[in-house]
Simulated scan of single mutants.
Amino acid sequence: MRIRKKLAIGHLSLLLCCGWSALLLQSAVLAADVNQVTATNEAANEAAKASQQRIDNVAEQTDKLLSEYRVVIKEIDGLQVYNRQLEKQIANQIKEMEALRDSIDRVTVIERQVIPLMLRMVDGLRQFVELDVPFLEQERQERLDNLDTLMDRADVSVAEKFRKVLEAYQIENEYGRTIEAYSGTLTLDGNPREVDFLRIGRVSLMYQTEDAQRSGIWDQTNRQWAPLPDQYRSPITEGLRIARKEVAPSLLKLPVPGPEAAE
């Protein structure tokens, strides 16, 4: 009986030992599976993280490229507008070039006509000065000589020549609306004398010696100087002072040649 109990106890111990061994073995297997699952999960997480990083990089590059694309599109739109504007400007410039060619052709024709006209104008002005009251003779003659020289110069444009001719005409025209006093030399009794000239437009040209003892007036009809009586001595002196702006203008009693009778 005791032997059977011992055998039973032995079998029970063996069974318990086998159970614990199996349990330990199963625990070891389960622990290995958990570690493998954990490692696999961690590897999957790392792969997912790397994939997400790549996705983020691609998305960032895509956004950057999209922004650059939009900028390029705007630049292209601006260039297209600019090109259309340039095309309009080029078309207008072509029209202007054609108009300039036509103008140049016309200028060539006009120039051939203007040059003879200017020469006739200078000759006409010279004849006018020669027949006019002889005031500022040297100054006016020098102006005419300068015009003659200017007409022969090749380095001066036709426009500039025409401007100078018109300027000479304007100066001559102004003489008829102004009064002027200036000094000069006049031959009296065969001797040169320093005198003061008083010009009143083109109506009257008078002189007076420096000592105010002699006065005279230009006789345009006979084209010579005629003496004036002493009664005009003071008015001429006063007129000289007015012309020089030394005194205020006032009413003067001066000789004025009468108009020529018509034939």
Rank of each mutant, 00 (worst) to 15 (best):
S204P: 01
R101M: 10
R223D: 02
P229S: 15
A50T: 08
L147A: 09
R84D: 13
P259T: 12
Q231F: 07
S250C: 12
V256Y: 11
A159D: 08
L136N: 05
N45A: 14
I242S: 11
D77K: 09
V81F: 03
E238P: 01
P192V: 04
R241H: 10
Q208P: 04
R177P: 00
S234M: 13
L131M: 10
A28I: 12
L147N: 01
Q89K: 13
A43S: 08
S157C: 11
L65K: 03
E96C: 03
R214W: 09
A212C: 05
L66P: 00
N57G: 13
T237H: 08
K6S: 14
R84K: 07
A159C: 01
K253F: 11
Q231Y: 01
D105W: 04
P192H: 06
T209V: 11
L100G: 04
D63Y: 02
E167S: 13
I3F: 15
L117W: 02
P249D: 07
E172K: 00
K253I: 08
Q89P: 01
T221M: 10
E174I: 05
R233S: 12
E174K: 12
A91E: 11
T62R: 10
E75T: 11
A212V: 03
Q52G: 01
Q141F: 05
A168D: 10
F128E: 13
E194Y: 10
F135G: 10
L198F: 15
E260A: 08
N57E: 13
Q138F: 03
R223Q: 13
L117F: 07
D145I: 03
S51Y: 09
R84W: 02
P249L: 15
I242A: 12
N191T: 12
T209L: 10
R84A: 07
V122Y: 02
L117C: 01
S157Q: 05
L188F: 07
D230S: 11
Q89R: 07
G124L: 08
A50Y: 01
Q127W: 03
V133W: 03
E111T: 13
Q89F: 12
P116Q: 02
A59N: 07
S157E: 12
D33Q: 06
N146C: 03
V203S: 13
G216E: 08
K74Y: 04
I90Q: 14
D148A: 07
P257F: 00
A243L: 10
D33W: 14
P134H: 06
L79Q: 04
G190A: 12
L166G: 08
M1Y: 09
T149V: 14
E68S: 11
D230E: 12
Q213G: 14
L131T: 08
G239I: 01
E137W: 02
M118A: 07
E210L: 15
K164M: 10
G184K: 05
Q141Y: 05
Q170L: 03
S103M: 14
Q113G: 02
R199Q: 06
Q93L: 15
I9L: 15
L119D: 00
L125G: 06
I76D: 04
G10D: 15
L100N: 11
E87A: 11
R70P: 00
G184C: 05
L25K: 03
E260K: 10
S67P: 00
E139R: 11
V114D: 00
R193C: 08
E174T: 06
